[in-house]
Amino acid sequence: MIKHLRSAADLDAPTATLILDTAGEMAALAGREVKKLPTLRGRTVVNLFYEDSTRTRISFEAAAKRLSADVINFSAKGSSVSKGESLKDTALTLQAMGADAVVIRHPASGAPHRLAQWVDGSVVNAGDGTHEHPTQALLDAYTMRSRLGRLDGLKVAIVGDVLHSRVARSNVLLLTTLGAQVTLVGPPTLIPLNVAAALSPKTKVSYDLDSVLPDMDVVMMLRVQTERMQDSYFPSAREYSRRYGLDLARMRKLPEHAIVMHPGPMNRGMEITPEVADSSRSTIVEQVANGVSARMAVLYLLLGGKA
């Protein structure tokens, strides 16, 4: 098993499949009355969060607690971090406290890579800047596999601000590893120029959502921040919605079996309409539940649990 999960590229197909299979076993646990395994009793998992992200933090917290680990939440607010302590000094502190795993969310790309050089424990990337969010990709892949029964050969459109999206990067890498065919869709300003060469030569790019939809098994809508308008990535929220938003009319262009995903938090009315988000094709709430199972699987396997 790998030691750290810094990037979805750390996972080869057998390892990724093992994590998804393990997540399935963890999910079965959620249906029981006692939702707890003793596996990580006595182990310490630190949630080191430099960005506000309640949903990701509580997901990791629930995952670690269901495995009986001791959980320490270390948030940048109200800690020495706000007094200017460096990441290295924080790392040495966590090291001295005997952290077995550090789950890090950080606004700077590559912070998990730096952290891994300074701590002995496992490092799990819970989102770093505009780089990656590998556990999100794992829970997305798990969701697709549960709903559609397979990943190999699946056609997945990832739509929106790919340029700034850590979710998109991790999903392209992981889904390609697992045999899916990814098409990135968005305005050219928000798709990196050389994205296929950079991430995976099999990746396709389209600027026309309507032409892509009829062929897709999965459409994943990315959150688009309205402040991108100020930087001229697109002219207005209205124009963005018109060209790249998923509404009922567009959803009807999808094949019958296709699902709609969103990593959250959503801008309802911007990249996705409420009718679509709340439709039976939407897996958005399921993704949240699956997040706990996927993160349990990651912590379980990284910290030496046997599958």
Binding site: G110, G129, T130, H131, R169, P192, L193, N194, V195, A197
Partner: peptide
């Protein structure tokens, strides 16, 4: 900007 704009910057998520 953080590094040369190209395939590597896209992969690393650095501006």
């Amino acid at each position: 900007a953080q590094m040369h704009e190209g395939e590597v910057s896209t992969r690393l998520g650095l501006t």
